[in-house]
Nucleic acid binder design. Sequence first.
DNA 1: TTCATTATGTAATTTTACTACAAACTGTTA
DNA 2: TAACAGTTTGTAGTAAAATTACATAATGAA
Lengths: 276, 276
Amino acid sequence: MLAKIKAARDTLRKSEQKVADVVIADPEQSVQSSIQAIATLASVSEPTVIRFCRALDCVGFQQFKLKLAQDLARRGTFFYQDVTVDDSSKELANKLLDGAIASLVQIRNQINEDQLDKAIAMYEACERIELYGSGGSAVVAEDAQLKFFRLGKPAIAYSDPHIQHASAALLDKNALVIAISHSGRSSDILKTVEIARQSQAKVISVTATRSPLAQVSDVALTVDVNEDSDIFSPVKSRLGQMVVLDVLAVGVAVRGGDHMLEQLSRARRAIDFKFV
Amino acid sequence: MLAKIKAARDTLRKSEQKVADVVIADPEQSVQSSIQAIATLASVSEPTVIRFCRALDCVGFQQFKLKLAQDLARRGTFFYQDVTVDDSSKELANKLLDGAIASLVQIRNQINEDQLDKAIAMYEACERIELYGSGGSAVVAEDAQLKFFRLGKPAIAYSDPHIQHASAALLDKNALVIAISHSGRSSDILKTVEIARQSQAKVISVTATRSPLAQVSDVALTVDVNEDSDIFSPVKSRLGQMVVLDVLAVGVAVRGGDHMLEQLSRARRAIDFKFV
DNA sequence: TTCATTATGTAATTTTACTACAAACTGTTA
DNA sequence: TAACAGTTTGTAGTAAAATTACATAATGAA
């Protein structure tokens, strides 16, 4: 939740940002405050606070406070810690693992059931799938391709933006695009999605809450992660994206009933034996 | 909090006990209810509910709900559960995420510091790196390539076993191979490693404990994960492998001192901005 | 049975969250 | 730059929730 606020902060309206800042500055305090108190602190009106909550997919202020409270309760179990030069490799490993775990916990608490259901329905309705991701997200797209092509519909992943553009232009209304991007701001992916939509294709994005990419997609599966402590590529969001796509794929499989599940597990044994 | 309610339950007054029973019966529901709703459910008056909260050392109903919510958030964290056909997408997502989290916790608890230190030393001693992984592990190898090539030495990932063989044959004693395989039993990867060792290259494997691959490597970074519940490709071991390789890369970077870390974080910002 | 004490409920009050609408601001077209 | 549409924000009112004060009922000891 807190990560979600941070991620969404820049896409909020000006006065809502003030609210976000107040909450980020002292979440423990916010959780105990009334709308009025927060509104005063942020120098905005009370409805603005409610609008802020709604922008974060909460039905109201109470739910927002509840989610925030739960978020606060959970951190402390595994939490982010910066790596320092004096760390032993054991400490280093623990810190990094803790960070990764914490981010998955965060994602777990953020899953939007509604969007997920829609995404599953979109898969069921489509005839083929294209996965777009560049740079680090290319890895995720490829991983997802491995999953999706076992579900019975053609699935292909492209990492080169030029090829993405070209391929997106050739889609039709029976195609489903899954666009993967950590920030959701890369102009390449936005352009690709724009082209895909012109081709009438449906678009699911796996990206940050309220990012430009999320906003131009039919369905957004959001992955918000605190990347401050990542030195390299954003491993944590990578992991999050992979798991979210796994959830989608399993969701599709489960809707297909027992039969499909069994078939898949047989396929898995056969393939894994050879490849992994 | 929930424990507190249970403990206090018998010392409460009769009608407060009714409230306690309602809360214990369905805490998730209670956390979202109003005083009125709970009062009705327990067939008591609203002030009784408040008295119940006060009896539990809360200043009011709101604080009680908050504490209960935090309690709920903390408890029962993360264990494997099989997905069933009747699961809602929310349940499904939670089960899968929990499984993934549990597996990272497991990896965290079994990191072998000694092997990790050796691996870091081997990186420092080598001149170039080759990453081998096929099928699902190809994704991990690619991801690792992205990390390692920023550390200053050439790094390249191959997924095609034939090319792996050919490339391994051309290595020398200054080369470092990182071989990735979930099972550590695929004959392709074993053959590749055998060739690499004949070429005098050093070998780090990222695979299951005591697997054939682990046994023929100079250093084995082990990733053991309960895959029973994975329907598709082994996501969990995939995640584990990625994190373990991240640990290795960060470890290398940290040994390079503050200077290297800073340089990397600058590089990251530049690259991420464009690519992710 | 009566009285004191405790427990519970009723009804009023206050606080809080939320809604509807209007004003103010932003940016765009003529 | 004036007029406009669209968006953002605030004002004022409303509904609902939590809380209080007080009354009534239950309990139990003398």
